[in-house]
Every structure is written in C-alpha cells, then in structure tokens.
Amino acid sequence: MTIRVLLADDQDLLRRGFKMIIDAQPDMETVGEAADGAQAIAQAAALRPDVVLMDVRMPGTDGIEATRHIAAHLPEVKVLILTTFDVDEYAFTGLRAGASGFLLKNVRTEELLTGIRTVAGGDAVLAPSTTRRLLDTYARTFHAPEAGLPPKDVLDPLTQRERQVFTEMASGRTNQEIADRLVLSETTVKTHVARILAKLRLRDRVQAVIFAYENGLSAPGR
C-alpha cells in the first residue's frame, strides 16, 4: 500500500525537498502541503493522510497545537514531529500532544523515510539515545511524580512478564534490544508490546515512555 503523506512546514524550500524525496519512493506519495498549523488541521481532515510530517514552529497555529487537534479528532492520522536540536523541549511537548515520534531537521534521507514507514505502520519513532537525553532534560518540567514512589497500581492490568517488557520500553529500547535482554524472540516481544499498549490504553511506544515518567515509574538518569 502507498503511504500518503501530508507536509506541514512554513518553509517552502523544505517542503519541496521533502516532497521530492517522498515522491521518489515507490511506496509513498505526497498528498498535500500546509504552511501553518491551521492549514495542517484542515488538510488532515480533508485528505486523511497516513502520516503528517509536522514542523513545530509555524505562524499562527503552531505544530504542537495542530498535533494536539489531529491526535484528538483524527486518531487514524499519525503525526511525525520535526524539530531542531536547539529546541528539544518542543519535541517532548509534541509527543505529549499525541505525536507518534520526532525527527531532527538535519535527519538523513534514509532515517526520514524509515521514520515515515515506521509511524505509518503503527509504531513510533523512538531513537533511544536521543529520546533518553530529551526526556532526562525535560521530564522535570512537567512535574512528574518522583520515581521510587508507589505507582498507584497503574500497572495492575499487566502480567509480570509484561511489566518487565514495559520497563524496557520505558527505557527507550527497541524490540530487538528487549528480546536480547529478556531472552525472548522479537515476535514475542511485539506481542507483549501490543498487549501492554492495549491494556494501558496507550497509543504507541512514545506514549508508554511518557506514561512511565508521569507516573513516577521512570526518572532522569534511571
């Protein structure tokens, strides 16, 4: 199936560059463009793309608010946030607003395409090293409970094995890394991840990490 992508960025040159890359792929096509958040919301509603490649800083309605609206009203449309290293806090805010991941604007072409395919497939773009640094830096900003306190039974729906997998997910590890650490097959890990997300009513792995921080199940440096 062809992955339908909406580009939301106030820089025309960047949109053109992304469009050329995306349209050159046999499994992707650009279905629309938006120069601000309001246009992104309208285009997402009208076109129902699989993925919105969303800039953060745009005039008027910014990418964060647009992401929040799309996640709330168009849950089948996935948002992939674009940001720069200098404003990582926007990436974290975007993830909390409902984005399925984030990429830096200086991302390599292969990483951009992999990110789009990953998000379109229902998973999240969660680069462990970048995500851990990002959350370690900004987790306290959102007043998460202190790690080590009782988790208020938020993990009660999970089995013991699912709790182990959740702990690894909260550390930003990939399915393969989790499989290696717990001596499981990657397929088994994928099954556990799907069950965990369903039981905790989480959208994807990114939301699982944020859930862990907000409930005091993980903290900077852990």
Rank of each mutant, 00 (worst) to 15 (best):
I3Q: 07
V5T: 03
D9G: 01
D9V: 03
D10W: 04
R15M: 08
R15T: 02
G17V: 07
G17K: 05
F18H: 07
M20V: 09
M20C: 00
M20P: 00
I21R: 06
A24R: 11
M28P: 08
E29D: 08
E29T: 09
T30V: 15
G32P: 09
A34F: 02
A34I: 00
A34G: 01
A35M: 03
D36E: 10
Q39K: 05
A40Q: 05
I41R: 01
A44T: 04
A45N: 07
L47C: 02
L47D: 05
V51W: 00
V51D: 02
M54G: 08
D55G: 04
D55S: 05
V56D: 04
M58G: 04
G63P: 03
T67H: 06
T67N: 06
R68S: 07
A71H: 03
H73I: 02
H73A: 07
L74Y: 10
P75R: 13
E76P: 04
E76L: 06
L80R: 11
L82D: 04
L82E: 01
T84Y: 00
D88G: 14
A91N: 03
T93I: 08
L95M: 04
L95V: 00
G98Y: 04
A99K: 11
G101R: 10
L104E: 01
K105T: 10
K105W: 08
N106I: 10
E111T: 11
L112F: 09
L113H: 05
R117A: 13
A120M: 03
V125M: 14
P128V: 06
P128A: 12
R132A: 11
F142T: 07
E146H: 14
A147V: 12
A147W: 07
G148W: 02
D153E: 15
V154Q: 15
L155Q: 15
D156I: 14
D156Y: 13
P157Y: 14
L158K: 15
L158Y: 15
L158G: 12
T159Y: 13
T159C: 13
E162F: 14
E162V: 13
R163V: 12
R163M: 12
Q164E: 15
A170E: 08
S171P: 01
S171K: 13
R173L: 15
R173I: 02
N175Y: 01
E177V: 03
D180E: 06
R181I: 02
L184D: 03
S185C: 04
S185G: 08
E186P: 03
T187H: 12
T188P: 10
T191V: 11
T191N: 13
R195E: 13
I196L: 12
K199G: 10
L200Q: 13
A208E: 10
E214C: 07
E214Y: 10
N215I: 07
L217Q: 11
S218G: 01
A219V: 08
A219R: 07
